[in-house]
Structure formats: structure tokens, C-alpha cells
Design a protein around this nucleic acid. Sequence first.
DNA 1: CTGGATCCAGGCAGATACTG
DNA 2: CAGTATCTGCCTGGATCCAG
Lengths: 161, 161
Amino acid sequence: MKRAEREQPAARPEACNATTPMGRAIRLVGDVCILLIVINLLSGPRRFSELLEQLGHISSRTLTQRLRLLEELGFVERRAFLEIPPRVEYHLTPTGQEFGQVIAAIEEFARKNLADPLPPASCGTLCSAPSSDHSPVSRPVTASLCDESDALTEAGEEAEN
Amino acid sequence: MKRAEREQPAARPEACNATTPMGRAIRLVGDVCILLIVINLLSGPRRFSELLEQLGHISSRTLTQRLRLLEELGFVERRAFLEIPPRVEYHLTPTGQEFGQVIAAIEEFARKNLADPLPPASCGTLCSAPSSDHSPVSRPVTASLCDESDALTEAGEEAEN
DNA sequence: CTGGATCCAGGCAGATACTG
DNA sequence: CAGTATCTGCCTGGATCCAG
């Protein structure tokens, strides 16, 4: 058995409902690799190796998987030339271009709310209790994940790992 | 040590550039779990256990991680009540609501391009060779991932958002 | 009694090396 | 250059246990 091994390219199916369009969409969007591929392809056709470096440290295996999934969904078209040296170009189909809208939304969101890694954050400290007089224990948003794990603040190993 | 173990909540940092707003955004969006959480929270505050079932088979551990990440980013606010029985509510902050725009874009994309799992797909079979007279090997888009894996076909539970 | 932290084991993702 | 095969590791999910 070759190409259809035993693995789901995108996210794990249990995570969302694949029966609805939205479910499928989430599976696509909810995959960093796919997002990155589409973003790159939005700039025009790319060759396999080009994508490989553009995406950073994605393995060829993973790239192939994602590319194939996108191809099957009709978002990406693969064009292979049986020449020496071999050449394969991937480019977005019109449908795939639509994905650009989603990317755009993400970019806008990023600009508006992620310019700074840690905005004023939740008012957190005190907020009128929703429906009872109990004390809403407000946690000072201890950035546990941010300081000691590389959650979203480290500007270190982005590509040179 | 309790809550900050040793793991990255969202996607692996190597996958994208965390130094740019867009990079951070991709990390958020590129996580199915996070998407699902936000979608659920868009409908209003939820309790921990509610989210747990809404998301399906996400483990409490993973849910806690994501929730905490979103909390630190200021997208989600955690409100715990020291009462008996204990109660914890999570709800989106205004900033978190912004995320709704992204969700909306995804939904629109889903409606437009994912209503049918496998659209006409890439014309694939033949397309005018881009810049050479070699034969573009057109592969019949073998739906390897779609049929034999539960990629896009299994039916499960619904998180009606 | 809920929230969630820990431990264990399994599955998916990534890296490396090889082939056409 | 494109893609595949195999191995390893990390993340994830499940069960269990603890704290408030």
C-alpha cells in the first residue's frame, strides 16, 4: 500500500463534524500546514521544492499529503511534467482562490488583535458577577504558558531550529 | 508543578512564524480545537463541562490547555465561582468576539465551496500546458483519503454552534 | 459535585534516507 | 527534483485522582 496509508492529512476527524460544510472547512482551516500552503499558492503557482522551503520545516511527506488533499478537494491543481529533471507545479484553482477570503479575514484579525502578543487582556480582575453574589475568583491571568512554555511569545526558534 | 507542563497548546511553533501577527493568527486558527471553542463561545458563555461535550471527544486536558491559551491572549475570560457545587464559566472577551469575523469567513467559504465534498474538482484531466509541450500527467484524483479513511465522510455528533 | 491535573498508551506528524 | 518508506517523538485522548 502506497499513498493511502492510514493517516488523515488534516486534523483528526473526531475534532469536528465532517458531515457539514462547516465541519469540512474547519478541518481545512484548522491545519497550519494547509493554511500556509494556500497562502503561498495565492501568490502564484509553486513547485514542490519551492513550497517546501517556503513553508519552512514541513517535511516532504507532510507537504505531499496536504497537497494531495487539496488536490482532491479541487482547491489545488497539480501539473506534472514528465521531463528531466522532473517538474511539478501546484497552483490554486478558482475554488482555491476563494480561500483567499478566509486568509484575508485572518490577516485582518491578526492586524487588529494580534499586533501585540498580549493585549490588555481580559479585564479579568473584577467583573460584576453574572448571576450570583459569589466571589468570582479572578485570576491575574498568570501567563504560565507564555513565559515558561513557548506558547506565543518567544521569538526564537521560528525557522532555524 | 501543575498547569504549565511542557507542551505547546496550539500548533507547533515551527510550523509558522510566531514573530508576526499573521504568524500568531495562523497558530490560533490552525488549531481545530481552538476554532471549535471559539465557535461555541460565540453563542454565549459556557461551562467547562459544557464545552467538553460540545467539542465532542476533546479531552479535558486539551480543553484546559486551549482555554488557558485563549485566556492569556485575552480572547477568553474565565470566571470561576467558589461555590458548591463549583462552577466555572468561560466567555469571549470583546477581542475574542472579533474572532467571529474569521469564523464567518470560514462559514461563507464552507457554504460556497464545501457544500459538496468533492466538487467537479480540478479540471485536472487536461489543461493547456503552461509553458512546455511535455505531457502534463493528469492524475484521476484518486480519492484515497476520502473513501478509506474517515476523512470527510463519517457522521458523528453535532456542535450546532 | 465540578473543574482539572496527572499517568499511560496510542495515533499523527516530522525527520531522514532512498528510489524513479 | 518529486515522492515514498521507515523510525521516532510529541501530542492527544481516556481514565483516574485531587482540590475547592
